[in-house]
């Protein structure tokens, strides 16, 4: 069976939107509703984060979301159940995002099985670089047809970049800046330069994020990447102005990103 991520990126002339939801913030029902509305408002891929006590790659916004979700008693199994329910409601590819200790404690094989049962198409673990082991995880994901998504960042050595390009499947998660999520807004020249370099080295689809928080930034990336990632900004919008603000922001991005026309 073809992975839905591959099906999505088979059509190359559109810029897709990828969004981020922390499961359990403010509660699981709300995250489910938020993710569903995102899909209906133009999100083409959705990352669902299983909250962790010490999210190393995340800035203040997503960190606070993780804390909130954990304060609510959100457990990994609850997140998988939520993803399963989301899977039944929307057709966009779903990705499980979390930190290495969560799959490490559950065991790589079990974690992969849970991802598969929940209907996830990809897994993102920012603190698990390709040259560190997590017993059973990568093999089990491959066997179940789930992509392990690799991150690439400006400043990487050419050697490491080439190795990652050789290992990667699905798409590349490219950070346009070196930093934590949501810490700064704006697209830096260094990020675009790195993007050009990566593009010249691979035919893999590229999803780019870190610093994207306005429709015109999405527009700027149009044609250069296969997907734009919007994370912290949407969480801030929901927290400050509610779910409707997230929906209208995504609609705006969609029209400036000129994505595929929606059936509804």
């Amino acid at each position: 069976m073809t992975n839905p991520i591959d099906t999505l990126f088979n059509e190359r002339n559109a810029t897709r939107l990828m969004t981020h939801v922390v499961a359990g913030d403010p509660d699981l029902e709300s995250s489910l509703d938020l993710a569903e509305r995102m899909a209906r408002s133009g999100a083409d891929l959705i990352e669902i984060q299983i909250p962790f006590s010490d999210p190393l790659a995340d800035g203040p916004t997503i960190m606070a979301s993780n804390q909130k979700a954990l304060d609510n008693g959100t457990r990994p199994e609850d997140c998988f159940k939520m993803i399963r329910r989301l899977r039944e409601r929307v057709s966009v590819p779903l990705l499980v995002m979390t930190y290495a200790n969560i799959p490490y404690r559950r065991g790589g094989k079990r974690f992969a099985g849970e991802c598969a049962a929940a209907g996830a198409s990809g897994v993102i673990i920012p603190d698990l670089p390709w040259d560190e082991p997590l017993p059973g995880l990568r093999d089990a994901l491959r066997n179940r047809g789930i992509h392990f998504i690799h991150l690439v960042s400006p400043g990487m050595s050419d050697d490491r970049l080439k190795t990652v390009l050789g290992l990667a499947s699905g798409f590349l998660y490219l950070t346009l800046r070196v930093g934590t999520t949501g810490a700064a807004s704006g697209i830096e020249p260094r990020g675009l330069e790195f993007l050009r370099k990566v593009k010249s080295l691979t035919r893999l689809p590229v999803a780019a994020g870190f610093g994207v928080s306005a429709p015109d930034q999405v527009k700027r990336l149009k044609g250069r990447v296969e997907a734009v990632i919007i994370g912290s900004h949407l969480i801030n919008l929901r927290r400050g102005q509610g779910v409707e603000a997230v929906e209208s922001f995504l609609h705006l991005c969609k029209s400036s990103g000129n994505g595929r026309p929606r059936p509804e």
Binding site: S53, D54, Y99, N101, I102, Y104, D127
Partner: peptide, 20 residues
């Protein structure tokens, strides 16, 4: 329990789900 936190694998005080 064995775990991965702050860039290294070691023994960490954590709950059964891996939260520190």
């Amino acid at each position: 329990r064995p775990g991965i936190l702050q860039g290294y694998k070691s023994t960490f005080l954590q709950d059964e789900y891996g939260q520190v």
